[in-house]
Design a protein around this nucleic acid. Structure first.
Length: 366
DNA sequence: TACTCGTGGCC
DNA sequence: TGGCCAAGAGT
């Protein structure tokens, strides 16, 4: 399949002048570190560059290579991932590191097929690591590439049904010489020029070849089917203290929503929040309601009534445990529950632990 | 195929 | 304010 020299050349030329400087990118033609490429690609799944940068730096400092990450305790990996979202990625990341050590002697395999067989590596990440880290001629298709290609060719089929067509269109443009740069160029273009809203067509290197631009319809692509409305659920969560200042927590089931993460004592989530008396009885504590927090997950919104109080007996309800401040700081607490902590701590001046605001919450636990 | 699975920023 | 969006994977 012959490449399209004009579009590919224009894109690579633009990339050579305007590529973004990102921490995980090798500089000056240096060899990319496959571990760094893989780690960044997993973190970047459905996640913005801005959100990833701090997490990436901390992971690389704590675990500089795949063997170090494989040897880390699972709880430590989850704790460092807390706040980044999609926690199955953290579990798969850890499993993948172990698999690379066990199956491949601690070196990432270089082919798309071998990479694809590892935990947490799907079609996109396998192609991206193969192309960027190893120079394999792989077709990398992410959300940016979809947007660029559907505009370039005015693809009328909505995604995800258009994926096979988008893949063919992309594959026809991949150069044998610089497949990794081509992939990153297309993604950089999608992130900075061919953006979802208000694309900067006037300064786009592909504007002369773009079918949507010629028709003035660039904003219509990629075509998408309407989504369903997100339902709302209600529940309650309580920050319960023991006399010595320990707090009641429990670990969520290892799979599913926020799998393996730590939560405070709480109710199930459903059409209505439980009554205050119900929460008090189940927790064995005298509770006061201190507020409400709102959190929007991908497919539902959650409203939690927040309670705070002191245990009467010091007994932990079934499945719960007491943790002191030092241990609490090591717990993997997702942002949804960090909001609960903040609301409980901010409820009165006599909050157990002072809370500052650093944008990540839980500063009072450090 | 269609659903599950976080979070923050944007307009 | 709320819907949309972001370098997707697993089931």
């Amino acid at each position: 399949m012959p490449a399209s020299p004009a579009v590919t050349a224009a894109l690579l030329s633009w990339y050579d002048r305007h590529r973004r400087a990102l921490p995980w990118r090798a500089v000056g033609g240096a060899e990319p570190d496959p571990y760094a490429v893989w780690l960044s690609e997993v973190m970047l799944q459905q996640t913005t560059v801005a959100a990833v940068k701090g997490f990436y730096a901390r992971f690389l400092a704590l675990w500089p290579d795949v063997a170090a990450l494989a040897a880390a305790p699972r709880e430590a990996v989850l704790k460092e991932w807390a706040g980044l979202g999609y926690y199955a990625r953290a579990r798969n990341l850890h499993d993948c590191a172990a698999a690379v050590v066990e199956r491949h002697g601690g070196r990432f395999p270089r082919t798309e097929t071998e990479l694809r067989a590892l935990p947490g590596i799907g079609d996109y990440t396998a192609a991206a690591v193969a192309a960027i880290a190893f120079g394999e001629v792989a077709t990398v298709v992410d959300g940016n590439v979809e947007r660029v290609m559907t505009r370039l060719h005015a693809v009328e089929t909505p995604v995800p049904a258009a994926r096979p067509e988008i893949r063919r269109l992309t594959a026809a443009l991949v150069p044998r010489a610089r497949p990794g740069d081509f992939a990153q160029a297309t993604m950089d273009l999608g992130a900075t020029i061919c953006t979802p809203r208000s694309p900067a067509c006037a300064i786009c290197p592909l504007t002369a070849s773009c079918a949507a631009r010629a028709a003035g319809t660039q904003a219509l692509y990629p075509r998408k089917l309407p989504r369903k409305a997100v339902p709302r659920r209600f529940g309650a969560m309580a920050v319960v203290e023991r006399a010595d200042g320990a707090v009641l927590v429990r670990t969520r089931p290892s799979k599913g929503l926020l799998g393996g993460m730590t939560e405070f004592f709480g109710s199930d989530w459903g059409p209505a929040a439980p009554a205050a008396s119900e929460m008090a009885e189940a927790s064995g504590a005298a509770l006061e309601r201190v507020g409400q927090v709102e959190h929007v997950f991908t497919h539902f919104a959650l409203t939690l009534d927040v309670y705070r109080g002191r245990s009467r007996s010091g007994a932990a309800p079934e499945g719960c445990r007491w943790v002191g401040p030092a241990q609490l700081a090591r717990e993997p607490i997702p942002n949804a529950f960090a909001k609960v902590w903040d609301a409980a701590a901010g409820g009165t001046a006599s909050a157990v632990v002072p809370v500052a605001a650093d944008g990540l919450g839980l500063v009072g636990l450090e």
